[in-house]
C-alpha cells in the first residue's frame, strides 16, 4: 500500500534531504548554545539570539528548517506505516539478523527527539510568537529612550492621568530595580515577566525580546529537566550515528575510497554534536 504517490526512492531521498538540513542546523544551534558557557552575563548569547531573531536571511532559513522538521517527521511516519503493511503476516521468531546498531530504531529515536522538540518549542520557540509566556529582556538604552520620550510628553502635558501614574510607577520601580534583573554589564534589563516588562519599561514598550539566556539557565537549574535533556541527547546521538552514513548511502555517494571517511565523519559528528549540547547542563551542574 502506498500512502504517498512518489517512488520509494524519491521518498527516501526526500527524507534524507530534509534530514540533511537538520544536520546542517545542529552545529549552528550548538554554537549559540555554547555561548551560554561564557561568563559574560549572556552578552554573546544575547547578541546571537538577537541576530537569529531579526536577520532576514535567517528568517528564510527558519521557514525552510521548520518545514524540514515537519516533513522529515511526516515522511518518516508514513514510510513506517507503508513498511509495516509490506509484511502483513509477521514472523513468529524475532529477527536474529545482525544489523548496524540503532539502524532498526530510527523511528523510535526520532520519536523521542520529536517529543523533546515539542517541549523545546513550548519552552523557547513559542515564546517568540507570544504563544507562551517566557522571560524577557530589554536594552537599557531603549528603555531610557522610551522613558525620555514619555518625560518630554509629560512636560508638554500630552499624557493622560493614567499614563502619568504609570510613568511615575515605572520611575519608582526602575530606580529600585534589583541586581538580578540586570545583566552583568548593566546594559540590559533581564529575566522579566510580562508584567515586569510593563512595570519597568512602560505599558507600551515594544522593544523587549525573549530572554532565552535566563530561561535556559533557569531550566538547567532544574535537575529533572537537565537529566531528561541529557538522555534526549544520548538518543539524538544514536539517531545521528545512523544518519550521516545513511544519508550518503541514500544519495548514492558510495565510493571505495570515500565511504570509510564518511563513516568516520559520521561517527565523529554523532559523538561531538550531542556531546557539545550535553556539555552545557553538565558544566552548569558540576562546575558552577
Amino acid at each position: 500500500m502506498k500512502l504517498i504517490k512518489f517512488a520509494s526512492i524519491t521518498k527516501k531521498i526526500a527524507l534524507a534531504a530534509f534530514g540533511l538540513f537538520l544536520l546542517l542546523f545542529l552545529p549552528v544551534h550548538l554554537g549559540i548554545n555554547l555561548c551560554l558557557l561564557r561568563e559574560d552575563g549572556g552578552e554573546w548569547y544575547r547578541n546571537a539570539s538577537h541576530f537569529m531573531g531579526t536577520n532576514y536571511i535567517v528568517k528564510v532559513f527558519e521557514i525552510v528548517l521548520l518545514a524540514s522538521v515537519l516533513l522529515h517527521i511526516i515522511i518518516a511516519i508514513l514510510l513506517t506505516i507503508e513498511n509495516f503493511l509490506a509484511r502483513p503476516i509477521r514472523y513468529k521468531v524475532a529477527t536474529k539478523t545482525k544489523t548496524p546498531f540503532m539502524s532498526r530504531y530510527m523511528i523510535w529515536t526520532g520519536g523521542v527527539i520529536a517529543c523533546f522538540l515539542v517541549i523545546h518549542f513550548i519552552n523557547f520557540y513559542f515564546v517568540k510568537f507570544d504563544l507562551v509566556e517566557g522571560k524577557y529582556s530589554a536594552d537599557m538604552e531603549q528603555v531610557d529612550k522610551h522613558f525620555q520620550e514619555k518625560a518630554i510628553k509629560l512636560q508638554s502635558g500630552e499624557l493622560s492621568e493614567k499614563e502619568q501614574a504609570s510613568l511615575m510607577a515605572q520611575y519608582q520601580a526602575i530606580s529600585q530595580v534589583s541586581m538580578d534583573k540586570m545583566d552583568k554589564n548593566r546594559k540590559n534589563l533581564v529575566n522579566l515577566t510580562k508584567d515586569e516588562v510593563k512595570l519597568y519599561c512602560g505599558e507600551d514598550f515594544k522593544h523587549y525580546e525573549p530572554d532565552f539566556y535566563n530561561m535556559s539557565l533557569e531550566l538547567f537549574a532544574n535537575k529533572t529537566y537537565s537529566i531528561i535533556y541529557l538522555l534526549v541527547f544520548v538518543v539524538l546521538g544514536f539517531h545521528l550515528f545512523h544518519a550521516l552514513g545513511s544519508l550518503a548511502q541514500t544519495l548514492g555517494l558510495n565510493h571505495k575510497k570515500y565511504t570509510p571517511i564518511i563513516d568516520v565523519v559520521a561517527l565523529a559528528y554523532a559523538v561531538i554534536i550531542p556531546l557539545g549540547f550535553a556539555a552545557i547542563p553538565l558544566w552548569l551542574m558540576f562546575m558552577l
Binding site: 520509494s8 548496524p100 539502524s103 548511502q249
Partner: peptide, 16 residues
C-alpha cells in the same frame, strides 16, 4: 513499488 515491497531504511539486513 507497485508490487508492494516496502521502502529501504538502510538497516542493511539484506546485506547481512
Amino acid at each position: 513499488d507497485e508490487l508492494g515491497f516496502g521502502n529501504c531504511t538502510n538497516t542493511y539486513a539484506c546485506e547481512a
